Amino acid sequence: MHLTELDDDPASPFPPVERALREPDGLLAWGGDLSVPRLLNAYRHGCFPWFSEGQPLLWWAPDPRMVLPSDGFHVSRSLRRFLRRSDWTLRADCRFDAVISHCADTPRRGQDGTWILPSMATAYRRMHARGHAHSVEVYDRDDCLVGGIYGIAIGRMFFGESMFSLSDNGSKVALLGLCRFLHRNAMPMLDCQMHTAHLESLGARTLPRERFIRESRALCALPGPPGSWQDGFGHVTAAGLSDSEPR
């Protein structure tokens, strides 16, 4: 099947996701750029950029899609015990640059290098400056980062991109804090892109691509929290996240 090359207009439509390749799963198009309008166009369309050093810019829409309901994070007994004893705190959009840098530098099992190339990091920092990209950060008692996550919010849909841990449970606590915030703001679904056993153990599940596209587009069209999340997220304690039910 012919792979579509995107033209220079960032507002031009992406090809229908049904044209994505089965092998490699979800490869939809190549080319274009990482401008803010192009990225917003891509996420609304149900695809995302993912490429390595030396490759052209590649766009993906895998089938099925991994998602985590914002009220569906599975807090294990061991994590709940950890949270109750923890003196960590969480904030949002306070250290986005540091979060994306740590995500880029964290070694990943089975990966040689990082997909968060300098061009990607610059693009998502631009998205953050425009109020589209957000981070949730986890801090220890000395106000040092121990974990974090970042992604893109459009309307009431959140598209997760990457997370990191500098201490055990750092990324889990960040993801849990993000889910609780999304749930409070009537944002029911977090896109996790690709299936992993780790995400599945935390409550994520797969959706057929057709259903994911339908539901995510509907959520993107609804009004969501505007601008920075700093004030809306507030100052959250990890111990406060140990409640069994989201509030």
Rank of each mutant, 00 (worst) to 15 (best):
K172P: 09
W59F: 03
T114A: 14
I154F: 07
D63G: 07
E23Q: 14
E245G: 03
F82Y: 13
F96W: 06
Y124M: 00
T4N: 07
L90D: 06
R130V: 01
M187Y: 04
E210K: 11
R80K: 09
H195Y: 08
E5D: 01
I154S: 06
A174Q: 10
L145E: 02
S162E: 12
R65L: 03
V17M: 01
R19P: 00
C94W: 06
A29W: 01
N169D: 06
G31W: 01
A61Q: 04
M189W: 05
R180N: 08
C144S: 15
F14A: 13
E245C: 11
E5G: 04
E245Y: 08
R80Q: 11
G232E: 10
N41Q: 08
H2K: 06
E200M: 05
A29R: 03
I152V: 15
A42F: 05
R141Q: 12
S228Y: 08
Y124G: 00
F159Y: 10
W30V: 09
D112H: 02
L58K: 10
E210D: 14
E210Q: 12
A42H: 11
P246R: 09
T89N: 04
H134S: 13
S76H: 13
R209V: 00
A221C: 05
R38P: 07
L40E: 09
D112P: 00
P118S: 06
H102M: 01
G170W: 02
P15K: 11
G148P: 09
V99N: 11
L39W: 10
S86L: 15
I100L: 04
H198K: 02
A197S: 11
T106F: 00
D87Q: 15
A218M: 03
G234E: 06
D231K: 15
M157Y: 05
S70Y: 05
F51K: 01
A104P: 06
Q55N: 01
L3P: 00
D243Q: 10
L58Y: 03
L199T: 02
R80S: 13
F73Y: 13
V146Q: 12
E53S: 12
F159S: 13
N169A: 04
R125D: 01
T237D: 04
P13R: 08
P49L: 04
P118F: 04
E18L: 11
A221N: 06
H132F: 14
L175H: 02
P208K: 03
E5W: 01
G224L: 14
I152Y: 03
R81W: 03
V67T: 11
V67M: 06
S52V: 01
R91G: 08
D25P: 07
L190G: 00
D231Q: 15
H2E: 06
T206I: 08
C144H: 14
E200D: 12
A153E: 07
R141G: 09
L83A: 10
D87E: 15
A61S: 15
